[in-house]
Simulated assay, not measured.
Amino acid sequence: MYLKKLIAPIFITLLLLLYYGFILLNLIRIPESVGIRILWLIVPLGLMGVSVFVLIERIKEIRSGDEDDLGKY
């Protein structure tokens, strides 16, 4: 029962990780100084981490059965 609800978040997260990974590969090839390159690499890495964190939170939410977040307000 949970599997059907998990397919979309997992698929979207995988697409985001592929996209950010592609950005990382392109940013590595930029012939800038090391400091600027490191600053530019932090953003996609941070977004990848946030995407995985949100996926984990969504999986916990689905397993707990709390689907309607708006019902709390």
Rank of each mutant, 00 (worst) to 15 (best):
L27E: 08
L27F: 07
L27V: 10
I28F: 07
I28M: 07
I28E: 13
I28W: 09
R29F: 14
R29M: 14
R29V: 11
R29I: 12
I30A: 10
I30W: 07
I30Q: 11
P31N: 07
P31D: 11
E32T: 15
E32Q: 13
S33D: 13
S33K: 13
V34W: 07
V34D: 06
V34Q: 12
G35H: 06
G35Y: 08
G35S: 10
G35D: 08
G35W: 10
I36N: 08
I36S: 10
R37S: 12
R37Q: 14
R37N: 10
R37C: 01
R37T: 05
I38V: 11
L39D: 12
L39G: 10
L39R: 12
L39Y: 13
W40K: 15
W40Y: 12
W40C: 15
W40F: 15
L41E: 05
L41I: 03
L41H: 00
I42C: 03
I42S: 05
I42G: 02
I42W: 06
V43F: 13
V43D: 04
V43S: 11
P44W: 01
P44N: 04
P44F: 01
P44C: 04
P44M: 02
L45E: 03
L45Q: 05
G46N: 00
G46H: 00
G46Y: 05
G46R: 02
G46V: 08
L47S: 11
L47D: 05
L47H: 09
L47A: 13
L47I: 08
L47G: 08
M48G: 10
M48Q: 04
M48C: 12
G49N: 02
G49L: 06
G49S: 07
G49T: 05
G49D: 07
G49Q: 01
G49K: 01
G49C: 08
G49P: 00
V50M: 12
S51D: 09
S51R: 03
S51F: 10
S51V: 02
V52D: 02
V52R: 05
V52N: 05
F53P: 01
F53I: 06
F53M: 08
V54Y: 13
V54A: 14
L55V: 02
L55T: 04
L55S: 01
L55E: 03
I56W: 08
I56Q: 06
I56D: 05
I56P: 03
I56C: 04
E57S: 12
E57T: 12
E57M: 14
E57I: 13
R58Y: 06
I59L: 02
I59D: 01
I59C: 03
K60H: 09
E61L: 11
E61S: 14
I62W: 06
I62V: 13
I62K: 04
R63I: 15
R63D: 14
R63L: 15
R63Q: 14
S64K: 04
G65Q: 06
G65T: 06
G65K: 02
G65W: 02
D66F: 13
D66C: 09
D66P: 02
D66Y: 13
D66M: 09
E67A: 01
E67K: 08
E67V: 00
E67I: 01
D68Q: 04
D68G: 03
D69C: 03
D69R: 07
D69W: 14
L70C: 09
L70V: 14
L70S: 11
L70I: 14
L70K: 03
G71P: 04
G71S: 13
K72I: 15
K72R: 06
K72V: 14
K72H: 11
